[in-house]
Design a binder for these strands. Structure first.
Lengths: 126, 126
DNA sequence: CAGAATCCATCACGATACTG
DNA sequence: CAGTATCGTGATGGATTCTG
């Protein structure tokens, strides 16, 4: 089970996307990068709409991919803390420009209705 | 149809990943960036294993997302050329660091059997 | 050549219930 | 609290066939 890898990667983008392809992985990365350390319930609260199963699953995969570190405390009220590994941090850094691009895209979408806004591309299909 | 997703994004990463999340989109981007202009069959050859359906589907979505430009020539042997828009180019630029990260990951995986792997850059013997 | 259409397999994702 | 187990579903991806 786990992950049927996409076999031999053709390029770096491919390999990287394989690791972040999951509905919540981007957000998990963001959350862990922002807060440094987070507990299971905290992450869950930070990702509105995620189910425990998906959160666990994604966390496990990311742990296996060496992105996330999982620290378990053998206490009476169980406590588990998640944080990014060096590897995970470097991924996040590499994701920086993409994040900014995404922000621009969001901004663009907000003004997409204004047709005067953009004169450069706008392919007009007739 | 196309994409019912794209709810309100929580962060830029989320928005960007939504656009490149597809089995071949990363490769398509890479291919179009490398060759500048590509025909349908060329793209198909460049993406070993892709089906026509998926290629068409991905291309259409990317066109709709404003990443790809589709130029149709009304000739007897039909010819369609795909290229990146400005928007697509900027995405690719933003994808650069991620691609390099992915390359590192591939390299790392090659030496993954060495559990001692640390801050060391071993030249690949062989 | 560049696709559209159809059918089919798989899997990512989710809801719910149970546990140490 | 932090999971695990099970089941169900729609989206995603693929093989094949047909067309302008």
């Amino acid at each position: 089970m786990a992950k049927p890898r996409s076999g031999p990667y053709i390029c770096g983008i491919d390999a990287a996307l394989d690791v972040v392809s999951g509905k919540w992985k981007g957000l998990i990365l963001w959350e862990l990068d922002t807060y440094d350390v987070r507990r299971f319930a905290e992450l869950r609260r930070g990702l509105p709409g995620v189910s425990e199963k998906m959160l666990t699953q994604h966390l496990r995969e990311m742990e296996q991919d060496g992105l996330v570190h999982r620290e378990v405390y053998a206490e009476v009220p169980p406590r588990v803390e998640y944080s990014l590994t060096e590897h995970g941090r470097s991924l996040n850094a590499a994701l920086g420009p993409l994040g900014r691009w995404g922000m621009d895209r969001i901004a663009r979408e907000r003004t997409e209705l204004v047709e005067h806004r953009d004169a450069e591309i706008l392919p007009r299909p007739s």
